[in-house]
Amino acid sequence: MTPPTSASSTSRSRIIIALVLAAVAIPLLVLGLIDPLEGGLALVGVVVLGVAVRLLSKVRVPRLAWISIIATVAVGALTIVLAVTARPQPAVGGTVASPVSGVILGLLWVYRLGVLSTLAGGVLYIVRLVGSLERNRR
């Protein structure tokens, strides 16, 4: 067995650092389930960490991860805009309701499903990183 070259050990170190950053991103994804406002900020943090991991490791991000996080951030932004701009209307029985409250509720569930899909993509990315680390070891 030959000792590792400095290039391969540097590459290995970069992948290990990327793996640690990817592992830090997973709890942030779970925080994304809260709601589009606070959870959306967590998803922005995940995007920043994901870009750092990609640049360090040079391992391609799975489509499941990057497509679902872009779609989830877009749905979250739409939900926030609708919730802020909706004007409540007096309803029967003295309650106040918004004409788009059902749409907002539906978008919240689509947002949560998007976060779960992004979480699955993140786990798949960690598996790819570990596989890259194993290939680099040989």
Score class of each variant (00 low, 15 high):
Gly50Leu: 08
Ala97Phe: 11
Ala77Ser: 09
Val103Pro: 00
Leu78Val: 05
Gly106Thr: 15
Gly93Asn: 06
Val100Thr: 14
Val61Ile: 13
Ala22Leu: 07
Tyr111Met: 05
Leu37Val: 05
Leu108Glu: 09
Trp66Arg: 04
Val75Asn: 01
Ala65Ser: 12
Leu28Asn: 08
Ser101Phe: 10
Ile67Gln: 12
Val81Pro: 00
Leu78Ser: 11
Val51Leu: 15
Val96Thr: 12
Ala22Gly: 08
Leu28Pro: 10
Arg12Ala: 13
Leu56His: 09
Gly45Arg: 04
Val59Pro: 15
Gly94Asp: 01
Ser68Leu: 02
Val73Ala: 09
Trp109Pro: 07
Gly40Arg: 02
Ser13Arg: 10
Ile80Cys: 03
Gly102Met: 08
Gly102Phe: 06
Gly40Ile: 02
Asp35Arg: 07
Ser57Ala: 13
Ala97Lys: 13
Val53Ala: 08
Val110Arg: 01
Leu78Gln: 04
Ala86Gln: 15
Ser98Trp: 09
Leu113Glu: 03
Gly39Lys: 00
Ala74Phe: 00
Pro27Tyr: 08
Val20Gln: 10
Val48Ala: 15
Ala42Ile: 04
Arg12His: 11
Ala22Trp: 01
Ala65Tyr: 15
Val92Arg: 12
Ser11Cys: 14
Gly93Met: 06
Pro62Lys: 01
Ser11Gly: 15
Leu31Gly: 11
Ile15Tyr: 02
Leu41Asn: 05
Arg63Phe: 06
Ile104His: 09
Arg60His: 13
Leu82Asp: 12
Ile17Gln: 10
Leu105Glu: 15
Val100Met: 11
Ala74Tyr: 00
Ala86Lys: 14
Ala86Asn: 14
Leu64Val: 05
Pro99Thr: 06
Val20Thr: 13
Gln89Trp: 13
Leu105Tyr: 13
Val92His: 08
Pro36Asp: 00
Arg63Asp: 12
Val46Met: 03
Ile80His: 00
Val51Lys: 12
Gly94Phe: 01
Glu38Asn: 09
Ala42Gly: 02
Leu43Asn: 02
Val81Asp: 04
Leu108Gln: 08
Ile104Arg: 00
Ile17Glu: 12
Ile16Thr: 10
Ala74Gln: 03
Val110Pro: 00
Ser68Ile: 03
Thr95Ile: 15
Val44Trp: 03
Val73Phe: 02
Val51Trp: 09
Ala71Lys: 03
Gly76Ser: 01
Val46Glu: 01
Ser11Met: 15
Leu78Ala: 11
Gly94Val: 01
Val81Tyr: 00
Tyr111Gly: 04
Gly45Gln: 00
Ala23Tyr: 11
Arg14Gly: 14
Val96His: 09
Leu28Lys: 05
Arg12Trp: 09
Arg87Gln: 13
Ile34Ala: 06
Leu31Tyr: 10
Val100Ile: 14
Pro36Asn: 02
Arg60Gln: 14
Gly76Asn: 04
Ala74Ser: 08
Tyr111Val: 02
Gly93His: 07
Ile80Gln: 01
Gly106His: 12
Ala91Arg: 10
Val30Gln: 10
Leu43Ser: 04
Ala86Tyr: 13
Trp109Ile: 13
Ala71Trp: 05
Leu113Arg: 05
Thr95Val: 11
Ile15Gly: 04
Ala97Thr: 15
Glu38Gln: 07
Val30Ser: 12
Ile104Val: 06
Gly94Ile: 03
Ala91Ser: 15
Pro99Cys: 07
Arg60Ile: 06
Val103His: 11
Leu82Cys: 00
